[in-house]
Amino acid sequence: MNEKIVEIEGLTRIFKKTRAVDGLHLIIETGELFGLVGPDGAGKTTTLRLLAGLLNISEGTAALMGFDLNNQPDSIKPYVGYMAQQFSLYGELSALENLLFFAELFDVSSKDLEERTERLLEFAGLLPFKNRRAAHLSGGMQKKLALACTLIHEPEILLLDEPTTGVDPVSRREFWNILTELHLRGTTIIVSTPYMDEADRCSRVGLMYAGKLIECDTPHNIRKKIDSEIIEVWPVNWQKALDKVMELENIKEVQTYGETLHILVDSGERQLPEIKRSLKKAGIEVRSIRVAPVHMEQAFISLIRRIDA
């Protein structure tokens, strides 16, 4: 079961002067739900495009299911489902027609065709809309249709580039329910996302930065990597509170999010009273203050900051 389905060694892609992907090493096993996260411009899209065989590799090698991308870029296509970031369906075609179009390009046999399109439309909750033109579907439905299109040939590997960008939370959850379903069935999925709660749902997360993979582990372990606990403060006067908190001792890091402050500390239990006291002394009113669980997002920010610094 646990074979290496994706093997990447020293993968590099150079655009003019910039090394968009720079010596990437990564091995993904069959059945993983692998999340690719990282700041904008870190090289996530380029990596996925390289894996889909859409870009030439400048240096290094990558193999999908044992097919070397340098030599056999076309051999992998039947096994890979790729969904581009700006996936545009053909607006003039209906949902069903879009699906059939990709089915034929991926050589889905005609006897499977009907059963499979029905099932996928059902799966994506699009059965009532199958004759509606793609252009007239809502954003969330379009994304689900796009996913259905990439699933039509039952690929072994799914490459999804920010599939839920611009999708409302309800549709986003539905989308991820579909992904989880696929994951449970054993499809290998590589997904890039700017949503950290989505990263949390992956079996493994790779953190890319400047074209390199700098962390790669389970979400649980990544959250542990920052080696901190979090105290969440919602002050009345945000700016004043921030200034004060920055002066406090024994504090690892302060993250702001809107009007809330996330203070990274060694031990929440122990330091919460201290911090409460200090703030009170400085005359800073708070609406709420508590020890909060570490989310992927805070870990992400903290890790990126450490590299930046």
């Binding site: 990282g38 920010e162 960008t165 611009g166 700017p194 945000w238 993250q255 999010y257 992400f300 920010i301």
Partner: peptide, 20 residues
Amino acid sequence: DEPTAGVDPLSRRAFWDLLY
């Protein structure tokens, strides 16, 4: 209209700081 769609968390925060 969906200004932060697809933006990484770090930049989204910077963006909200700026909005504030």
